[in-house]
């Protein structure tokens, strides 16, 4: 059996090796963009069934973001929504025969975590200013600066490892089951994998939202009179 920790290039574009997760991501991107274009073309004030589902999803995302960030969800909607939908579809793509989810590879999860990390920095600086954001690392006291810095790295790595571990393990278990048992035996595990994929997509998106919200709100709280008064 091939190790899931190793990706082999499928082909090269010049010096750049193109691996299976990249191709799978392109396919998923194409499907998502085509779906978005089709939906956009048929958007109406009186929505159809598909539009109702799409509005339900975006509405639920807005509610989650608003609950976590405690502010208008518009600046974070595209990032968190894209991460959630991509991770969900990528995780579920493993149910298709012969398709290995891109999120089962460390590189894709690292790219997703990198986006969250950059977005956290961007929104933290945008909300608090550069100095203000740096000051948040000295909260509640300057002694915490090293720990806060390490936390930024470790929580990003935890994002990567959590998603990678869950999805990869599901793929790995199904592969083992397929090699050991018959064709229909892994179906319950695949169903469980769908549930795990949805939960992981939700967890990844919400954690990204929590990190961004923390970066935004920590500066707000640090500058608030209630916090500085005692």
């Amino acid at each position: 059996m091939k190790s899931p920790l190793i990706v082999e290039p499928m082909f090269h574009i010049g010096p750049v090796p193109v691996t299976q997760p990249v191709v799978a991501t392109w396919v998923i991107m194409a499907v998502m963009v085509l779906g978005a274009l089709l939906l956009k073309r048929h958007l109406k004030q009186r929505p159809g069934k598909v539009q109702v589902v799409a509005e339900l999803v975006t509405g639920a995302l807005d509610d989650q973001i608003r609950d976590v960030v405690q502010s208008d969800p518009a600046p974070y909607r595209v990032l968190i929504g894209t991460i959630f939908l991509f991770v969900l579809i990528a995780n579920w793509s493993g149910a298709l025969p012969g398709v290995e989810p891109p999120t089962a590879h460390l590189e894709t999860d690292a790219a997703l975590a990198l986006m969250v990390f950059v977005a956290t920095l961007y929104h933290g600086v945008r909300s608090n200013g550069f100095i203000g954001y740096l000051k948040t690392f000295a909260q509640p006291t300057w002694v915490m600066i090293p720990l806060n810095l390490v936390e930024q790295i470790t929580r990003t790595f935890s994002l990567i490892i959590r998603l990678f571990g869950n999805v990869m393990s599901g793929v790995f278990v199904i592969g083992i089951m397929l090699s050991l048992a018959g064709l229909l035996v892994p179906i319950p595990l695949m169903a469980l994998d769908l549930l795990t994929g949805a939960v992981q997509a939700y967890i990844f998106a919400i954690l990204g939202c929590v990190f961004i919200g923390a970066a935004v709100s920590e500066g707000r709280e640090a500058g608030s009179p209630e916090r500085s008064a005692p």
């Binding site: 991107m29 963009v33 894209t82 991509f86 894709t108 790219a111 997703l112 990198l114």
Partner: peptide, 12 residues
């Protein structure tokens, strides 16, 4: 993948 996700972010 990072580029892909940024592009997907923009497209979506």
């Amino acid at each position: 993948q990072t580029i892909n996700l940024v592009v997907l972010l923009w497209l979506l």
